[in-house]
Computed example of a mutant assay.
Amino acid sequence: MTDTFATGVSPRTATRSHHPQQLSQLLRNLSLNAGPKITLRDLAAAMEDRSFGAFLVVFALPNLIPLPPGATFILGLPLIFIAWQMFASRRTGIWLPKRMGDYAFDNTTFFVFVNRISPWLQRAETLIKPRAWFLGSRFAERLVGLLALILAVVIFLPIPFGNWLPAFALAVIGFAHTERDGLGLAAGALIGILSLAVAGTVIFAAGAVLAFLF
């Protein structure tokens, strides 16, 4: 395995536990055991076969806050990159290009960040927890990846009021994926399908208005 790969997860690792460590504790342990710098590759390796979901959460959450015009182009591209791998890759964990994987940040800053979001994560973990996990095959994972990819494309497109709900759906899907929560994943998928219907309605309405005007 060359150093251009973030992590290579074997099928044995992917299925070794039905009750994985919670995300809040995993992030805290990563900070406590790492050196002065933490790279995105370190984060992906710590997440192992849950890295798809974790990175979906990381890049979906910023889309839930008011952003300047054009910001969705920047934040949507990483989501497309992650969701495409989830759908098309044979890997059970995310692959990062060398330049992206080498991106590093101070562990001190990361530790402060983890401490700040831990209370929120722990509250979410009381709702989203390991149960009814049904992604036991790569085919099932690809189906979820396909939905995630469609949602990521919708987030990327400049659709008025059409980005928040798909981003929320991806955040729920990603978090449920990291916690191995089948019910949470199903809820995220339903929200995602609803968001696609809303986005389609917005596009149809905008097209009708333009047709009327011109």
Results as ranks from 00 to 15, higher is better:
120 W>Y: 06
56 L>P: 04
159 I>W: 10
196 L>Q: 12
96 L>K: 13
15 T>W: 06
163 N>C: 09
22 Q>R: 14
174 G>A: 01
202 V>M: 07
187 A>D: 12
42 D>E: 04
33 N>D: 15
148 A>F: 05
12 R>K: 15
207 G>D: 13
112 V>I: 06
65 I>W: 09
54 A>H: 07
94 I>Y: 12
15 T>E: 10
97 P>Y: 14
122 Q>P: 02
94 I>D: 03
85 Q>P: 01
91 R>A: 15
99 R>F: 13
189 A>N: 14
98 K>Q: 07
5 F>C: 03
44 A>M: 08
23 L>D: 05
107 N>A: 12
26 L>N: 15
86 M>R: 04
4 T>A: 15
27 L>C: 06
189 A>D: 05
6 A>E: 10
73 F>G: 07
21 Q>D: 12
121 L>M: 14
40 L>W: 13
196 L>V: 02
132 A>Q: 09
94 I>G: 00
170 L>F: 03
68 P>R: 13
57 V>T: 03
33 N>Q: 15
38 I>L: 15
72 T>V: 00
71 A>T: 12
41 R>F: 01
10 S>N: 08
86 M>D: 09
202 V>E: 03
122 Q>A: 04
196 L>C: 03
55 F>L: 09
209 V>E: 11
109 T>P: 01
81 F>P: 05
200 G>H: 05
14 A>W: 12
212 F>W: 12
138 R>Q: 09
134 F>I: 12
42 D>P: 03
137 S>P: 01
214 F>S: 10
195 S>I: 14
166 P>V: 09
29 N>G: 02
137 S>F: 00
101 G>I: 01
139 F>D: 07
92 T>C: 04
4 T>Y: 04
60 A>W: 02
131 R>W: 05
169 A>L: 01
141 E>P: 02
122 Q>Y: 04
74 I>V: 13
153 V>M: 15
98 K>R: 13
24 S>V: 00
83 A>R: 01
59 F>Q: 08
12 R>G: 10
48 E>N: 07
99 R>E: 13
75 L>D: 01
166 P>W: 12
101 G>P: 00
142 R>W: 02
186 A>C: 05
184 G>V: 01
180 R>P: 13
73 F>N: 06
69 P>Q: 07
175 F>S: 06
